[in-house]
Design a protein around this nucleic acid. Structure first.
Lengths: 192, 192
DNA sequence: GCATAAATAGGACGACCGTCCTAGACACAG
DNA sequence: CTGTGTCTAGGACGGTCGTCCTATTTATGC
């Protein structure tokens, strides 16, 4: 399994570099330097650059899904779980301030390239969208659960982008507080 | 001034292509094809690709500034002007659904490239930020005008990105309605 | 009409990229 | 030790890119 170890290291290095430098702006040489292997060796593990992107997206999909399902099983109330999602913005503040939203920036780039991986990047949004929708449903807002989920998704996406443009932690904290207040407003007063 | 005519056509074509395909993904050959001139002719008007980017950013800065100042002089109330900004999302719905936010997507790309033009792209945000701040001040919210401006900027930014990921006009319209309701909430009841 | 400058065309260049190929290193079964 | 399959290194190839160079065309002043 030493080979698969190298494969995983390639995917992990590519994951970080795609986030920090973008997909197109990251070359095989960049990844090779980080992993510490030769450029030509990629083609034993991947046939094209797009396959690395696919593997990176697949990895992100799985990681996020596992993270959200773990939250959902930890027995908290739906609004506490949504609050956990909102606080992700604070937990990842350094990365967000310097590189923006991992979901949004990748999607935006692939979209402009007309790259087939665009669908996979949209799938990353979907993971959060359906998870948030489920939480709002369980919170008692079944009627507009998807609407609320999209709203929160867009909101956090915009906050991440602006925090990147103005690397100001105070702004991030203010917006997180605003989101939590909004969540409290949205929560039915007599929760079931 | 025939030369400057060509120059302007280059800048305008580059402006569109940078928005639709991204800066890095747009080559000289792409722009040349649109403008209808030869590839080598660029270097009579620009010395580097970065200079074209600078010209594009400068043009966008000027256009936005003129647009906003025109609004500010049209004698409406501040909240009507802010509502006009919000409704930009609807006016440009086709472009936003297919290419996202012109400000955010350019900034995100330049940021990942560590490109010196990043500052100019941030300047585009600044134009809207200070204009919105002024409107909120005139609306009677001087204390938190900048806070409100950043909030609305982030919100609209996120909505544009999500509308790009889910090209759904209904979502755009719902969020615009939500923003207008928020604006009404923010407006002091006894406006001066 | 001629000299001068502005403007354009088109190819050459070096660099980088993704991709591919081949030879060698390594692990392990017999 | 030997043979076999896995894994790696490093260079070659073709394409594209930004950049540059040099002719040629077009416009302008005298």
């Amino acid at each position: 399994m030493a080979a698969s170890g190298t494969r995983d290291r390639i995917v992990e290095a590519a994951d970080h570099l795609f986030y920090e430098q973008g997909f197109e702006h990251t070359s095989f040489a960049d990844v090779a330097k980080v992993v510490g292997i030769s450029r030509g060796n990629f083609y034993y593990h991947f046939e094209t650059k797009d396959q690395i992107l696919d593997a990176v997206i697949k990895k992100r999909l799985q990681e996020k899904q596992v993270m959200l399902e773990t939250w959902a099983e930890e027995g908290e109330t739906p609004d506490q779980r949504i609050a956990g999602y909102i606080r992700l913005l604070l937990m990842n503040r350094e990365q967000i301030c310097s590189n923006g939203c991992p979901l949004g920036s990748l999607f935006t780039e692939l979209c402009k390239m007309n790259h087939p991986g665009e669908g996979g990047a949209r799938g990353l949004f979907d993971v959060f969208r359906v998870w948030l929708k489920r939480q709002f449903e369980e919170m008692g807002r079944a009627a507009d659960a998807d609407d609320l989920a999209l709203h929160l998704l867009a909101w956090s996406q915009g906050v991440a982008t602006l925090a990147n443009a103005y690397p100001d932690e105070a702004f991030l904290e203010k917006e997180v507080a605003r989101m939590l207040a909004w969540l409290d407003d949205v929560k039915p007063s007599a929760e079931g």
